[in-house]
């Protein structure tokens, strides 16, 4: 009986030890195996990678129903978590089908069935990642990314600025807006460079984020309906007596007679004021 109990305990501890070893091994491996490379994008309806990896059963039904062969299943040896669907925008971008067949095909809800308008998809975010290479920034007309964008003028707009190199021409450069970009990757696919200057990245990589403690004064003012700091007073300048600013602060005029300002003793060098006084005479 004692031998039996010892044997039992031995078996139990051996099994527990084995299970623990396997668990540790799997856990460690998963750390590596689940990191998603930046150029690999998920199909529409994936909110976050870790939720997706618990929901996707790797059946490939989304891949089968993708009419443009955009989606692929990750194979052993690929960088993407084994067996899960992804696409590489530079190769084949998402065509943003209106009926979203990939999401409809998903049996588990790994691709969120609540996504019914493809414009709401957030597969990533286009970033004009290399302004040095983008020919629009060299002053050439390109605008290909803007023209292929399914949400042109919303997700990508053209911004006209001064061409400092020539001094007389305009730069017409694409600007991405994160509130509208779905990350379909058509811009990256169409970019005429050898290596795309505009790339779709996972939003997590592409987006900056202001610290929670940070407040933008003008937004707070708008929310509160009034200034939250000392009320704005007319600026007090150390101007010579009888002078006032005009032209929105860009020029000096003789001060209006009826609106006499209090003269403040200036801590600054008198000679500068002397010079101003001379100018007024």
């Amino acid at each position: 009986m004692i031998m039996g109990r010892r044997r039992f305990l031995q078996n139990i501890s051996r099994a527990a030890g084995g299970a623990a070893l396997y668990g540790i091994g799997l856990g460690l491996y998963s750390q590596q195996a689940t990191s998603l490379p930046a150029q690999s994008l998920r199909p529409p309806g994936v909110a976050n990678e870790s939720d997706f990896l618990s929901a996707c059963v790797r059946c490939g039904l989304c891949v089968r129903d993708c009419p443009y062969d955009t989606l692929k299943l990750s194979k052993l040896g690929d960088d993407v978590a084994l067996g899960t669907p992804y696409f590489d925008a530079r190769k084949i971008p998402c065509e943003m089908c209106e009926d979203i067949p990939c999401v409809k095909a998903c049996p588990t809800g790994a691709l969120d069935p609540e996504l019914t308008n493809i414009d709401d998809a957030r597969m990533g975010l286009a970033v004009l990642i290399d302004q040095e290479a983008c020919i629009a920034f060299q002053g050439l007309r390109c605008e290909v990314c803007f023209n292929v964008c399914p949400l042109a003028n919303k997700a990508i707009s053209l911004n006209r600025t001064h061409n400092q190199r020539t001094g007389k021409h305009a730069l017409i450069v694409p600007v991405v807006h994160s509130d509208a970009c779905t990350g379909c990757g058509k811009c990256e696919h169409a970019c005429i460079l050898e290596e795309a200057a505009i790339k779709v990245l996972p939003a997590k990589l592409a987006k900056g984020e202001l610290g929670d403690h940070y407040r933008l004064g003008w937004q707070e003012k708008q929310k509160a309906g009034k200034s939250l700091v000392t009320p704005d007073l007319p600026h007090q300048y150390n101007l010579p007596e009888g002078a006032a600013y005009d032209y929105e602060g860009e020029g000096l005029i003789p001060a209006p007679k009826n609106n006499k300002k209090e003269v403040i003793d200036s801590p600054f060098n008198k000679s500068a004021i002397d010079r101003l006084n001379e100018g007024l005479k």
Partner: peptide
């Protein structure tokens, strides 16, 4: 199997399907 049953909820992903 026991290791998978424990490690899956702990990690929150389908561990075994990675291998």
């Amino acid at each position: 199997l026991a290791a998978i049953a424990v490690a899956t909820p702990v990690s929150g992903i389908m561990l075994w399907e990675l291998v």
